[in-house]
Write a protein that binds this DNA or RNA. Structure first.
Lengths: 232, 232
DNA sequence: GTCCGATTGAAACAGATGTTTGATCGCCGC
DNA sequence: GCGGCGATCAAACATCTGTTTCAATCGGAC
C-alpha cells in the first residue's frame, strides 16, 4: 500500500541528491529556534524549498525527521568539538580543563558554523524527548566521565557525589550562558556595548573560577588531613 | 458585541468565587509541565473542572491566561522566597550567600508547595515570551544585584564584568540542577538510590564550591598586590 | 522509444486546538 | 414574581497542522 517508509538509506548514505539534506538543514534551524512543537512541517519544507509531502517521503514523520536531525547534530558535534579539545590526555589537568570548557562553550555559542547544532542538543537537555535518550547517553555520559577524570586530578580529595557535583558545577556555569542567554543579555543592556559574550572571555572566566574553587578545596583538605595527622 | 473582555478585576481582587483561581492553578501546572505551546486550553479547563469558554470569559486569550498565571507565580515567588532568605542584611556575607543559594534552589525544587511556580519562571528564562520581560526584569534584576553585592563582599577584588560573571557562575550552578534535571538524573541511574537531589545537599555543595572559588581568588589577588607593592 | 522505479507536486483529509456564539442558570434588588 | 446581570454550558466555527493520496515528472536500463 503506502510506499512511504524508506527504511533503507543507512542514515549516512548521501543517496538523494539534495532535498533530504536540505530538509535536515532547514529542520535543524526551525527546531532549534522554535522547539519541536512550534516548528511546523510547512515552514520547514518552505525553507528547504521542498514539497510538504517530502518530509513524509524521506522520513516518515515529523518526529522521525526531528530524530534524524538530532542525530545529525550529534554526529557533527562530537566530530567537530571533541571534549579533549585536541589536547593529549597527558597534558596538564589545568590545560585540559580549559580545553574542555572551551570545547563545551564553543559547541553552544559557535556562530560561524550553522549554530543550530548546539541549540538543538541543549534543547534536548532541558526537555528530553523519549527516544533520543540513547544519543544523549552516548554523547553526554563519556563527556561527563572525561570531565570527572579531569576534576579528580585537580582535586583528588573530592570523591563520589562531591566529585560529580563539582563536575556538574563546571558544566552548569557553561550551560548557564547558553540557556539564559536572552535573559543575561537583557540584564546587561545598560552597558553600552553589551556583555562581553565572546568565547574567550567566558572560557577564561569559567576556567579561572573553577580552578580557584578546586585549589581552595584542596588546600582545605590538606589542612584538615594535616590536623588529623597532627592530633592522632 | 462580544462581552468577552473583562479588563476589570484589578489583577488581585478575588471577585469570582472559584473558577478563575482554579483556572490559574490548573494553567500553572499545565504550562509548567508542557510549555505554552503544548499545553491545551481544553486540558487546562478539564483539570480546573471548568467549561472551555471559561478561559475566554475570565481572561481573553490563552496568552493572557499564561501571562496572568506567570504574574501569579512571580508574586508568589518573591513573597515566599525573598532572596535574603530571611537573613538580616548585616549578617556575614558567607551566611548570606548560603541563604541566597538556598532560597534560589528552594524556589525551583520545593516540592511541598505547588511546584509549578519555579518551573514556570525558569521556563521563561530559557525561552522568554515577549510581554513578560517586565515581570522578569522586576524579579530577576534586583535579585541579581543582591547577589552581586554579596559576591563583592566575599571577593572585593572582583569588579565590573568579572564580578557579574562570578555572580552568574553561582546562579548557573543552581539553575543547572533545575534545567538539566532529567538529564542529570539519568546520568546517575547506575547509583542505586539515585542522586542526592535534596535541597540541603545542593545548597551545601554550591555554597561550598563558590566560597572556595572566592577565597582562592582573593588569596591570589592579595598575593599579586603584595608582589606589586614589593616590586615598586 | 519504452518501461520502471524513484522523486516531486498539488490537493485534500483528518484531527486537534483556540475562539466564539447563543442559550441557560442562579442570584439579587425591586 | 420579575428583570437584569454575572457566570456557566454545550455546541459550533475557523484555522492550523501532520499526514495521505494520486497523478505528474524525471532519469536511467533495456
Amino acid at each position: 500500500m503506502t510506499r512511504a517508509l524508506r527504511q533503507s538509506r543507512s542514515a549516512d548514505s548521501e543517496a538523494s541528491p539534495d532535498t533530504r539534506a536540505r530538509l535536515i538543514e532547514a529542520a535543524g534551524e526551525e527546531f532549534a529556534e522554535n522547539g519541536f512543537a512550534k516548528a511546523t512541517v510547512r515552514d520547514i519544507c518552505a525553507k528547504a524549498a521542498a514539497n510538504i509531502a517530502a518530509v513524509n517521503y524521506h522520513f516518515r514523520d515529523k518526529e522521525t525527521l526531528y530524530l534524524e536531525t538530532l542525530r545529525h547534530a550529534h554526529r557533527y558535534s562530537i566530530e567537530h568539538y571533541p571534549h579533549h579539545g585536541g589536547l593529549a590526555s597527558d597534558a596538564p589537568a589545568k590545560d585540559r580543563l580549559r580545553a574542555f570548557v572551551r570545547a563545551f562553550l564553543a559547541k553552544m555559542l559557535d556562530a560561524d558554523r550553522p549554530k543550530w547544532h548546539g541549540r538543538l542538543i541543549s534543547r534536548e537537555m532541558t526537555e528530553p524527548t523519549p527516544a533520543l535518550t540513547l544519543i544523549i547517553e552516548e554523547g553526554v555520559r563519556p563527556q561527563f566521565a572525561a570531565l570527572c577524570a579531569i576534576v579528580h586530578e585537580l582535586a583528588p580529595s573530592l570523591k563520589g557525589e562531591s566529585l560529580e557535583a563539582s563536575a556538574a558545577s563546571v558544566i552548569g556555569q557553561a550551560l548557564h550562558y547558553h540557556h539564559c542567554n536572552s535573559m543575561i543579555k537583557r540584564l546587561y543592556t545598560e552597558r553600552k556595548d553589551g556583555f562581553p559574550f565572546d568565547l574567550e572571555f567566558l572560557t577564561d572566566h569559567i576556567t579561572r573560577f573553577s580552578l580557584a574553587a578546586f585549589e581552595s578545596i584542596e588546600r582545605a583538605a590538606g589542612e584538615k588531613s594535616k590536623n588529623r595527622r597532627g592530633k592522632h
